[in-house]
Amino acid sequence: MARLFEPLIGIACALAAWEIAARVAGNATLVPSPATVWNALVAMRGSELPRDIAASIVHLVVGYVAGAALGLVLALVAGSSKWFAAVIDPFAEFLRPISPIAWIPLAILMFGVGGGVPVFLIFYAALFPIFVGTLDGIRRVDPTLVNAGRALGASRATLALRVIFPATLPSIFAGARLSLGVAWMALVAGEIVGGDAGIGWRILWYQEFFQMDRVLAAILIVGALGLAADTLLQALQRRVLRWLPASEGTR
């Protein structure tokens, strides 16, 4: 029973510290109190908030699906052709250290201020972890499994789909979760610097009007969305990788 209340104690401590900071500052603009931010959140609920959240989710999903799909295809081709791998590997190694954030100015140049910027950044942020993770997984597939499949008469397509692809899933998920932090920041940064919709863009909008209670409320929503994305990915990972021994599936 006590275990259920322990997280509540932590949250209560954090709220108390926030309230004390707000009282000490004594300035609702400098440090809006928890109650003010809650009121702002309630006031935002009926108007622009759902639209901003939806816009950010659309950016995330469109960019991520496109990046993951390209990464997957490139890795599958590289996994089956050593020549293609020899060409694409150095390019991937060259581009990988360039964080999506560094692309923001060029993305603004290419797509103009708008939804294209955050979508491109998420696309780029998803591409490399998925590509590297998949290729790494393909190279580490247990040859016994492949030989067994072949001996049992599996075609190349069946082999790729039923043996190699499932075996790469753990390393794909590992890469995806590792990159989610940077991907999420790239999305928010893209919306702040070069977007015209979404929760990140809205933070800057409120700042223009000096509504700091709303700014802080939007910041908390960024956190809630980030947490939701990570939780969802984790749940998906557990579901898809049910067949793995627990130690590997939950790392």
């Binding site: 322990e6 932590g10 920041m185 928010v188 940064a189 933070i203 802080l216 990570d230």
Partner: peptide, 28 residues
């Protein structure tokens, strides 16, 4: 006990993209 009490708070704070704090950081 500390872990159980503060992990949810820390996870929540960690999920806020650092860049989102920029207006508050500029203000402060």
């Amino acid at each position: 006990a500390l872990d159980r009490a503060f992990r949810p708070v820390l996870d929540g704070l960690r999920s806020i993209a650092p860049i989102a704090w920029i207006p508050m950081a500029i203000l402060w």
